[in-house]
Design a protein around this nucleic acid. Structure first.
Length: 437
RNA sequence: GGAAAGUUGCCGGAGUGGUCGAUCGGGCCGCACUCGAAAUGCGGUGUACGGGUAACUGUACCGGGGGUUCGAAUCCCUCACUUUCCGCCA
């Protein structure tokens, strides 16, 4: 959530920037500021009454000790009114603070200046592509370049069947739709990709983390999945635990309520986990095959950084993800998301898309975001420099590097040949073969 | 699943109603001693919110919430978590 300080000191600017995210924050911001004024006044009154109370209590104690019981009892009478008053004030203060927090939770992060104007996916800027140089004004809406291959191609769900790599029906039998069973080379390809992505991340300096796949409520709130996306997570009610939708949740929560030393930053973590998404309300061809699953594998990279360095970190993460796609020899494009298409919590976000030749469409395979202090504020993830008196909020960043299913879809579809599925060079050592027949 | 014990500052660990934001030890920082280091000695060492240009200062925080009391880390209730033993299991 945004900090009160930011809103108080830059009211007009915040409202203006929120508009870029297609969010009309004027009313809410005004409300927060009014509440904040009230909060200060209430606290001042409460603090001074509590101070008075403390003073009286001390005096009473001294009187009792001095054996002046009568005087002490007289002084006691004075406290009862004060006590009632402080109770009321303290309740009021809590109520005001809760109101402020609950409003702040409904206000999205403000986008960086580089974030393009726009409302929908078509407005996203294409900033880079493996297919051709990008020029100013390239957007998803006017982008027509695709790999020039006119051969008829099979979609991945048919290839998966043909080469006996993935059994969707078996998944339905065991668990339900959206839980595919990978087998043979299909299973091995999963393991190959996981290892490849982890090795690449390690080589880039990320510490590998193997976190729990199930988290408690506090962690869900920490990264913002709760309360808003409650219905999107699998919830084990008996134990009140949630299956993670992404490794971002357990990994970022490592740094919840932590004050880091500036020397530790940037923290670079990577993690492979299974990810679980209920995907409530998704139907149609978009969910066919591997396009949208309830359970899938993903390698996530997470960084905690200083405000000064976070943009540099973001660039490095983008370069890392691009490097992966290059090594996998997949046709890709990189989008800078417009204000309206960005997630609630991001300050800036780049999406990576890979072209699926059989489906004739671009598949989102990674999203790399800088959350500025928005997530850190909720997490209470702070750092202190050598000469800092006060801890200040970190910046948090994360990105998929990468999610497997759509990569697999693209690999199968784009690399199909008469002889079989060609395996890109980088994966051959992990697969133990250069073609799936 | 059964039983017991616990949760205090960066860590260990005291504290069982007032002078406790908290003894002491360790760590860390500063200073002194030293050619330098070690050892030693002295001093310092939390967070949040409020007031103040600042120095500084008020309030809150001893797992969470509630209660008793003029006054709670300390007493009571409640919830959560952790550890140990037994059982079960990999």
């Amino acid at each position: 959530m945004l900090t009160l300080k930011l809103i108080t000191e830059n009211k007009e600017e915040v409202i203006k920037k929120l508009a870029k995210k297609c969010f009309d924050g004027k009313e809410l911001i005004e409300k927060v500021l009014t509440l904040d004024t009230e909060r200060r006044a209430t606290q001042q009154k409460l603090d001074s009454e509590l101070a008075e109370m403390n003073k009286l209590s001390k005096e009473i104690g001294d009187l009792f000790k001095a054996g002046k019981a009568a005087e002490a009892n007289a002084a006691k009478d004075k406290t009862s009114a004060l006590k009632e008053d402080t109770k009321a004030l303290s309740d009021k203060l809590t109520e005001i603070e809760n109101s402020i927090t609950s409003i702040l939770l409904t206000i999205p992060n403000i986008p960086y200046d580089e974030v393009p104007e726009g409302k929908v996916a078509e407005d996203n800027l294409v900033v880079k592509s493996s297919l051709r140089e990008c020029k100013e004004g390239d957007t998803v809406g006017n982008w027509t370049t695709v790999p020039g291959n006119n051969e008829a191609k099979l979609p991945h769900w048919e290839l998966a069947k043909k080469y006996n790599l993935i059994d969707f029906d078996l998944g339905v039998k065991i668990s339900g739709a959206g839980f595919p069973v990978y087998r043979g080379y299909g299973a091995r390809l999963q393991r190959a990709l996981i290892n490849f992505f982890l090795d690449e991340a390690r080589a880039a300096g990320y510490e590998e983390i193997m976190p729990p796949t199930v988290v408690n409520q506090a962690s869900g709130y920490g990264t913002g999945q709760l309360p808003d996306k409650d219905g999107q997570m699998y919830h084990c009610e008996v134990d009140d635990l949630y299956l993670i939708p992404t490794a971002e949740v357990p990994v970022t929560n490592i740094y919840r309520d932590v004050i880091l030393d500036e020397k530790q930053l940037p923290i670079k973590n990577c993690a492979y986990t299974q990810c679980f998404r209920r995907e409530a309300g998704s139907y149609g061809k978009d969910v066919r095959g591997l396009n949208r699953l309830h359970e899938f594998s993903k390698i996530e990279i997470v960084r905690i950084d200083t405000p000064e360095h976070s943009k540099e970190s973001h660039k490095e993460m983008l370069a890392h993800v691009e490097g992966l796609l290059k090594k996998l020899e997949l046709p890709y494009r990189i989008l800078r998301l417009c204000g309206g298409d960005m997630s609630f919590t991001a300050a800036i976000c780049y999406d990576f898309e890979v072209y699926s030749e059989a489906q004739k469409r671009w598949l989102e395979v990674s999203s790399v975001s800088n959350f500025d202090t928005y997530q850190a504020n909720r997490l209470k993830c702070r750092y202190k420099g050598e000469n800092d008196k006060k801890a200040q909020l970190c910046h948090t960043l994360n990105g998929s590097a990468l999610a497997l299913p759509r990569i697999v879809a693209a690999l199968l579809e784009n690399n199909q040949t008469a002889e079989g599925i060609r395996i890109p060079k980088a994966l051959v050592p992990y697969m133990g073969c250069d073609i799936i027949k």
